[in-house]
């Protein structure tokens, strides 16, 4: 299956759900769907195209909105499904029902971008320490790193 055939299939299967589809390099396809159609698109990819391997989910801070990139792969192509959610209301449906292996990436998104993933089976923080101040989402562009004060463990102030 070459890239063009795959693009045709996606256009045919998802029809008007696809907002835009590009093929910038050999074996690389990017296509965009709206958040409402995300679950439908992922489950179509899994059941109709047999693409089950989710490499990762990347988050991007675009200023006014967040862009999520779901990197899928099969044995001939790396397929990236992208969707955009507004910054004011960062809510995303969970795809763990369809692809169980996505859980860690979705938890990471919650940690790093403060995106609320609905229906996630396990919503604990993945990487950030316990007692991390609420409302700090490190990979947002407006978050600045400040060197914390040095601490002598067990010392008395």
């Amino acid at each position: 299956m070459n890239d063009q055939a795959l693009i045709d299939k996606i256009n045919e299967g998802l029809k008007d759900k696809v907002v835009v589809i590009t093929n910038p390099a050999p074996r690389r396809i990017f296509f965009k769907v709206t958040t409402d159609n995300l679950l439908a698109a992922v489950s179509w990819l899994k059941h109709e195209l047999g693409i089950t391997h989710l490499s990762t989910i990347s988050g991007l801070d675009l200023g006014q909105s967040f862009e999520l990139l779901y990197h899928f792969a099969n044995n001939c192509c790396a397929l990236t499904l992208r969707t955009e959610i507004p910054r004011e209301q960062p809510v995303l449906p969970s795809i763990c029902e369809i692809i169980p292996g996505a859980i860690l990436y979705e938890r990471e998104l919650q940690d790093m971008f403060g995106i609320t993933v609905q229906n996630i089976p396990d919503s604990r923080p993945l990487l950030l320490p316990d007692g991390w101040p609420a409302g700090n989402y490190p990979l947002r562009k407006d978050w600045k790193y400040e060197r914390p004060p040095e601490v002598i463990p067990g010392g008395k102030s």
């Binding site: 320490p129 490190p138 790193y145 601490v151 067990g154 010392g155």
Partner: peptide, 23 residues
């Protein structure tokens, strides 16, 4: 597996916060 952001924050109030310069 764990790359992104690192910060070690002050754990509890009992611990004394000291800067390098004050040390």
């Amino acid at each position: 597996a764990e790359r992104s952001v690192a910060i070690v924050d002050a754990r509890t109030e009992q611990e004394k916060i000291v800067t390098m310069s004050s040390l």
